[in-house]
Design a binder for these strands. Structure first.
Length: 258
DNA sequence: GCCCAGGGTGTTT
DNA sequence: AAACACCATGGG
């Protein structure tokens, strides 16, 4: 299905889909090609609109979080932490996607001590390995059915066992994902920390990107660097939109030229 | 060859 | 609790 959605200003489709929160979109000929929630699509941003081919308006409006007021969020985080001015100015057009929980879980287990191009590569191979022409993200059942050697063979390295264990935990019901949308934050974090291979940083990423828990503030090497450089202060890290601010800063420090 | 990457685990101070 | 070694792998 084709169509277009009028979208708010101060939104960058490209920055959002390539900002390291998801790993299955690529830029070609001015359009973003990729998959979300089992729907393959091309998205293009043209003066005030998002044009889509594949999927429908409801899907993209939700996935891209177009109904959340990011102007208000930007104002709030910047007033809380004036140091964010720079990041918000140049990267405030990034939004937090509403991704599928299990995909976020797997993606950020794979992400540990890894770089973005390699994460993308591994996830792409994983989807291909599990069939469905690589369109659907593998189910917990599909991953749990793999041998650990198959996961190391596609580049997972020592994370293969972690991924397998997480998939088994979901499949068996030992790890229930749905409750993480609404569970008190600390309890949700602790639930994820109980899975081998998930530490504080990955847990925060899963909650932020997979469950839209915007108060999470993942601390990776770039954010620690940004804190050290004074691009952001701790003030905002414990606020209700901490994760949004974090994404502005992550994108800013990663793309600015020294 | 080296260092680094959206880190975590296990062990030693 | 803080410091450290170790973990696979490929991009730069």
């Amino acid at each position: 299905m084709n169509g277009r959605i009028s979208c708010p200003g101060g939104f960058s489709l490209e920055k959002t889909l390539l900002s390291g929160q998801c790993f299955r979109w690529t830029l070609a000929d001015g359009a973003l090609h990729g998959v979300a929630r089992g729907t393959h699509a091309q998205l293009r941003q043209t003066d005030g609109y998002i044009e889509f081919s594949g999927g429908d308006e409801a899907l993209w409006r939700d996935y891209l979080d177009l109904d959340t007021d990011y102007d208000a969020i930007r104002s709030e985080v910047v007033s809380l932490d004036p140091r964010l001015e720079q990041s918000a100015q140049s990267c405030g057009s990034v939004r937090i996607l509403r991704q599928e929980p299990f995909e976020a879980l797997c993606s950020f287990i794979i992400s540990q001590n890894n770089n973005i191009p390699r994460i993308r590569l591994i996830i792409s191979r994983l989807c291909e390995l599990c069939g469905e022409e690589g369109i659907f993200f593998p189910t917990a059942q599909a991953i749990a059915a793999l041998a650990e050697e198959q996961l190391t063979a596609i580049g997972c390295g020592y994370r293969a066992g972690y991924l397998l264990g997480a998939a088994r935990a979901v499949l068996s019901g030992e790890l229930e994902l749905e409750p993480l949308y609404t569970m008190p934050l600390e309890q949700a974090r602790n639930t994820l920390l109980g899975i081998r291979g998930i530490g504080p940083k990955v847990a925060d990423c899963v909650l932020l990107y997979g469950f839209h828990r915007l108060e999470c503030f993942p601390r990776d090497v770039w954010i620690k660097r940004a804190l050290a450089e004074g691009l952001v202060s701790e003030a905002v890290a414990h606020s209700r939109y901490a994760g949004v601010a974090q994404q502005f800063v992550f994108e800013y420090i990663r793309t600015k030229q020294a």
